[in-house]
Design a protein around this nucleic acid. Structure first.
Length: 202
DNA sequence: CCCTGATTCGC
DNA sequence: GCGAATCAGG
C-alpha cells in the first residue's frame, strides 16, 4: 500500500467521520488492518474500542472516583448499514445539496443496484423502538424531484471530494443515479455488499 | 457466527 | 513503515 498524501488525507477524513475501520478499508480498497495500523501510526484518535487488551491487572481498585466522564460517542452508529457516512456528512455540511438521502428510508426507490439495496441485514436497522409512543404526525419527506420545475436544480452526487474545511473541498456534483445520492461512479464504491469483503481472511 | 477495533510482530 | 495474524469484547 502506497500511503500518499491523498490516501492518508482520505483516511483521516473517513476516520474523523466515524466510519468503522472496515468501512474505511472498503472505501480505500484496503483491509481494515491496514486502516487500523496506519491510523494508529498516524496517531489518530482511537475510537471507542470494544476491547482493551494487554490488561495489567494491578490494583484491584474498586471505585476510586465516580468520575462522570463524558463519554464522547461519535456518530458512527450505522456505518455498517447500507449507506455510509459521506451522505450524512454531506447532508449536514452541504450548503444546498439535496436533502438527506432517502435511500434506506425507501428501499424500493433503489432498484438500480439490488446488490446493495437488498441486504438482508438492513432489516435490523428498522426497529420500532417506541411501542407506546403516539404516532407522530411526521411531516412527509419531500421527494427528491424539485417541486418547482422552473428552477429545476437537479440532485447532485454528494460524494465528498477533498478535505472538508479546506478551500478545495466540494461534492462530486454529477448527476446521481435515480433514487441514490451518488452518481454511478461513486455509488459503485459507496454501496458494497456486507459479505464478499476482503477483510475476512480470504 | 457476525461484527468491532487494538496490538503484535515478521517482513 | 507496513499490515496479516491474532486477540478480545459485543
Amino acid at each position: 500500500m502506497e500511503w500518499t498524501e491523498d490516501t492518508i488525507s482520505r483516511l483521516k477524513e473517513l476516520w474523523a467521520e466515524g466510519l468503522s475501520t472496515a468501512e474505511i478499508g472498503r472505501r480505500l480498497s484496503i483491509t481494515k488492518n491496514a486502516v487500523v495500523g496506519k491510523a494508529h501510526r498516524l496517531g489518530l484518535p482511537a475510537r471507542p474500542s470494544p476491547i482493551r487488551r494487554g490488561e495489567k491487572k494491578a490494583a484491584p481498585e474498586v471505585a476510586p472516583k465516580a468520575t462522570v466522564a463524558a463519554t464522547t460517542v461519535p456518530p458512527s452508529a450505522d456505518a455498517k448499514t447500507v449507506e455510509t457516512a459521506p451522505a450524512a456528512s454531506a447532508a449536514s455540511a452541504a450548503p444546498e445539496s439535496v436533502v438527506a438521502a432517502p435511500v434506506q428510508a425507501t428501499p424500493a426507490a433503489a432498484p438500480a443496484t439490488p446488490q446493495a439495496a437488498v441486504q438482508p441485514k438492513v432489516a435490523k436497522v428498522e426497529k420500532p423502538a417506541a411501542p407506546r409512543a403516539p404516532v407522530k404526525p411526521k411531516p412527509l419527506p419531500q421527494r427528491i424531484s424539485d417541486p418547482e420545475p422552473k428552477k429545476r436544480r437537479g440532485p447532485t452526487c454528494c460524494w465528498p471530494i477533498g478535505d472538508p474545511g479546506t478551500p478545495g473541498f466540494h461534492f462530486c456534483g454529477a448527476v446521481p443515479l435515480p433514487g441514490k445520492p451518488y452518481c454511478a461512479e461513486h455509488a459503485q464504491i459507496a454501496y458494497v455488499k456486507l459479505r464478499d469483503r476482503r477483510d475476512n481472511v480470504a
